[in-house]
Amino acid sequence: MERHTVLARITGRVQGVAFRAWTEHRARGLGLDGWVKNEADGSVTALIAGPTETVATMLEALHRGPDLARVDTVATEMAEDPGDTGFAILR
């Protein structure tokens, strides 16, 4: 099974709406590795690693976000695989 790793920057109304907790819950449920954190500019950044199809599923979910969020963009770039680290919220 091929692993894929992306760094995603999510913009819109994504802070103060439980976006990080929702992302962590989704990612752990899918068995993905990585992290999610708030940025000073109001965006959220997430490093997502795992099987290619599962990462694609998570990216689709990030385009929707939790109920109170409004996602404007999800910009992605290839990133280095963090390995088998689990998924965490960074402060």
Rank of each mutant, 00 (worst) to 15 (best):
M1H: 10
E2S: 12
E2G: 03
E2F: 05
R3N: 11
R3F: 02
H4D: 14
H4A: 14
T5H: 07
T5W: 01
V6R: 09
V6I: 13
L7F: 05
R9I: 10
I10T: 13
I10F: 08
T11M: 08
T11Y: 13
G12S: 04
Q15E: 02
G16K: 04
G16S: 06
V17H: 02
V17Q: 03
A18M: 03
F19P: 03
F19L: 01
R20K: 11
A21K: 02
A21W: 03
A21G: 00
A21H: 01
T23G: 06
T23A: 04
E24T: 01
H25E: 01
R26K: 11
A27H: 07
A27M: 12
A27T: 11
A27Y: 10
R28T: 00
R28G: 00
G29L: 00
G29K: 05
L30Y: 02
L30Q: 07
G31M: 05
G31D: 12
L32I: 05
D33M: 11
G34A: 07
G34P: 12
K37F: 06
K37L: 05
N38Q: 03
E39M: 07
A40Q: 08
A40Y: 00
A40L: 13
D41H: 09
D41T: 07
G42M: 09
G42C: 12
S43W: 10
S43E: 10
S43D: 05
S43N: 10
V44K: 09
T45C: 09
A46D: 06
L47M: 10
L47C: 12
I48P: 09
G50N: 13
P51G: 12
T52Q: 13
T52H: 07
E53V: 00
T54L: 08
A56R: 12
A56Q: 14
A56S: 14
T57S: 15
T57R: 15
M58D: 10
M58T: 07
L59N: 13
E60G: 14
A61H: 06
L62Q: 09
L62P: 09
H63W: 04
H63F: 00
H63Q: 15
H63Y: 00
H63E: 15
R64A: 15
R64T: 14
R64G: 14
P66I: 01
D67T: 04
D67S: 12
D67Y: 06
L68G: 04
R70F: 08
V71G: 09
T73Y: 04
T73F: 05
T73Q: 13
A75R: 15
T76G: 12
T76Q: 14
E77G: 15
M78D: 15
M78T: 14
M78P: 04
M78C: 07
A79L: 13
A79Q: 04
E80N: 08
D81Y: 13
D81M: 05
G83P: 04
D84G: 00
T85W: 15
T85N: 06
G86I: 05
F87T: 00
F87H: 03
A88L: 11
I89K: 08
L90A: 10
L90F: 10
R91E: 12
